[in-house]
Design a protein around this nucleic acid. Structure first.
Lengths: 143, 143
DNA sequence: GATGAAATATTCCTACC
DNA sequence: GGTAGGAATATTTCATC
C-alpha cells in the first residue's frame, strides 16, 4: 500500500470507467501493472466493489433524516432488525446522548413516520429523536 | 424511468463491472438496448458516475463522528468553508437541536480535534456537539 | 426504442525480466 | 513487482425495423 496505490484509488473513485492503460499512464506504470495493483487492492478488500453513484432525489428519495435511538440494545439482532428496514441507510452505535444513530432516506415524511414506527418495534428501544435534513450542502466520498 | 431502468440501476449498484450483455439478459433486453438505457440514465444525471467503494478503515480512517453545529449561518460561504475541510464527508442544514450536522471521518481522535477547531473558525459558529461512532452496524447505498 | 452485427478498444492471460 | 504481446471479451456505433 504505497502512494501509487493511493493515487489509483483516488482516480478510480473519481471515475471507475477509466481503462487500465489510462490509469497506468497517470501513475507512470504500464496498463498491465496498474491492472495488477488494482486487482490486488480488490483482493485485499481495500476496494470493496465497483458501483454507481445515484441521484437519490431522481429516484424519489427526497427526505433525509438522522434518528437518535434511545435504549436500543446494541447487542443481539438489533443490527439485523434495522438492516431489514429498507429506508435505513446507516446504523451506528454511538458514544453520547443516545445508543444508536441511524440515517434514513424516504420519499415522504409519511414514509419517515412508518420507519420510526418500525424502529420502535426493535427490542429495547425506548425512544427516538429525529433530525430532519432541510438542505444538503454536500455528501461526498473522501479520498 | 420505468421498472427496467430501476432494475438496471439496482444491478449496477451491486456491480458496475457487469457487461451490457449480462445486464440486458437480466432485464430481457439486448446488450445494445441495455447500453442505450444506461447511457440515457447517465445523461439525465440519475447515474452521477461510476466509482469504487473503498474500505475507509484500510485507508487509516478509523474514527467516524457526527458533529452538531450551533449558530453556523447556513447562508453565504459556510458550505464552501466546510467543504474545504477534507475530513468533512457530509454537511447538512437541519431542523432541530442545531443548525448544521456534519459527518467527519479521521484517522485519530487528535485529527478529529483539529477538525472541530477548524469548524469553530467558520463564521457564526458558536458551539459544537460531537457524537463519536463506536461501531458501525452498516453503511449501505439504498436501491 | 429495440435489434444485430461490425469496428474499435479493453481486459486478462502467458511468458519473460 | 514490472513489462510486453496476443487471444478473448466488451464497448460503441450504425443501419434497420
Amino acid at each position: 500500500m504505497d502512494d501509487i496505490d493511493r493515487t489509483l484509488i483516488g482516480l478510480l473513485m473519481e471515475d471507475a470507467t477509466q481503462s487500465y492503460a489510462t490509469l497506468g499512464k497517470a501513475v507512470g506504470l504500464s496498463g498491465g501493472a496498474a491492472h495488477e495493483r488494482v486487482r490486488k487492492l480488490r483482493e485485499r478488500g481495500v476496494i470493496r466493489r465497483t458501483t454507481i453513484e445515484v441521484d437519490q432525489a431522481a429516484l424519489g428519495r427526497t427526505v433525509s433524516a438522522y434518528v437518535l435511538v434511545d435504549g436500543g440494545s446494541w447487542m443481539g439482532d438489533s443490527a439485523d432488525l434495522l438492516a431489514a428496514i429498507p429506508a435505513v441507510e446507516e446504523a451506528h452505535v454511538i458514544a453520547g446522548p443516545a445508543s444508536l444513530l441511524l440515517k434514513v432516506r424516504t420519499s415522504s415524511t409519511k414514509e419517515l413516520q412508518d420507519v420510526l414506527r418500525q424502529v420502535f418495534e426493535v427490542h429495547g428501544v425506548t425512544g427516538t429523536q429525529t433530525v430532519v435534513v432541510l438542505e444538503t450542502f454536500f455528501e461526498r466520498t473522501l479520498k
